Simulated assay, not measured.
Amino acid sequence: MVVTDATGPRREAEAPTAKMRDALRAAHLYYLQDLTMDAIARELHTSRSSVSRLLSHARDTGLVEISIHSPLDLPSRLEQEILDRHGVAAHVVPVPDHASDVDRLERVALSAARILSRFIDSNQTIGVAWGSTMSAMSRHLTPKATHNSEIVQLNGAGNLRTTGILYASELLRRFGDAFGARVQQFPVPAFFDDPATKEAFWRERSTRRLLDLQAAMDVAIFGIGSPFAEVPSHVYQGGYLERADYEALSGDGVVGDVATVFYRSDGSTDGIP
């Protein structure tokens, strides 16, 4: 558990409110001094239910972060095995076997959103892709004030039905609002019909500026899409692909995508048109 003092750098509009100060004080008393809610209520001259709401506010706004470290449970053992085998620091979210894919998505998105703030800081360029997981995650982000940070859209969102701007911009806005960061959209199609068109577009200075931001990003946030999931990625249900596209992807052995970059079961992406 981490209690964050609310006196660090912030924009003028984010000055501590009375509720924030009370929530921080209640969190210190409860988590660091082991006082009961009744004792805190007496000290703050308020009710026990008000203390409970202050503690909830402290957790919801990022003043308090709770971490559980257990070497005994299955998720921890799986995390260690993934680290040993692949060199990847994973966070495994425990979900019951009977849970639906919709419930799994929501639980993973909620856990990921709460973990994410550890990796976000000031003076960062943060790449964000769109998709079903990212959209769910964006609804649960814990606010964290940063300065001089930018959210950069990683993949285009236009298709035959829509420009995708409204969908992508709402998702990006939630990230920008949560971290007090500027948002840079990437207004290009998700897929180009002609490679020559893409090459010409990539030579434009306005596009190059965004590509340079992407190349310099400090953090990349994306989901792993699959056409076989009960809750398919947005790229598979949003009108981005036609029957001929699915047939071509199947013929190439494609099993999923990361930020609309398709890959095979061995992780390769070469030669997929």
Rank of each mutant, 00 (worst) to 15 (best):
N155R: 04
G158F: 08
R161F: 15
R161E: 13
G164F: 10
I165F: 13
L166I: 13
Y167A: 11
A168W: 04
A168C: 07
A168G: 04
S169F: 04
E170A: 11
R174K: 14
F175S: 00
G176V: 00
D177G: 05
D177P: 04
D177Q: 09
F179Y: 15
G180H: 12
V183G: 01
Q184S: 14
F186A: 00
F186H: 00
P187Y: 03
V188Q: 03
V188M: 10
P189K: 03
P189C: 06
F192S: 02
D193C: 08
D194Q: 10
D194T: 06
P195N: 05
A196I: 09
A196G: 10
T197S: 13
E199T: 09
E199L: 07
R205G: 02
S206C: 05
S206W: 15
T207W: 08
R208V: 12
R209W: 11
R209Y: 10
L210K: 02
L210G: 01
L210I: 11
L211C: 12
L211G: 04
D212S: 03
D212C: 02
L213K: 03
Q214I: 05
A216C: 09
M217P: 06
V219W: 06
V219L: 15
V219K: 02
G223H: 08
G225R: 00
S226K: 01
P227E: 14
P227T: 06
F228M: 11
E230V: 02
E230P: 03
V231F: 08
H234S: 14
H234D: 15
V235S: 07
Y236S: 02
Q237S: 13
Q237C: 09
Q237K: 11
G239E: 05
G239H: 05
Y240M: 07
L241Y: 14
R243P: 08
Y246P: 00
Y246R: 01
E247F: 02
E247C: 02
L249R: 00
L249N: 00
S250Q: 11
G251A: 13
G251C: 10
G251T: 05
D252H: 07
G253Q: 10
G253M: 00
G253R: 02
G256V: 01
G256S: 08
D257Q: 05
D257G: 02
A259C: 05
V261F: 10
F262M: 03
F262G: 01
Y263V: 09
Y263P: 03
Y263G: 09
S265W: 10
S265I: 11
D266V: 02
D266Y: 11
G267M: 02
G267W: 03
T269I: 14
D270I: 02
G271A: 08
I272F: 14
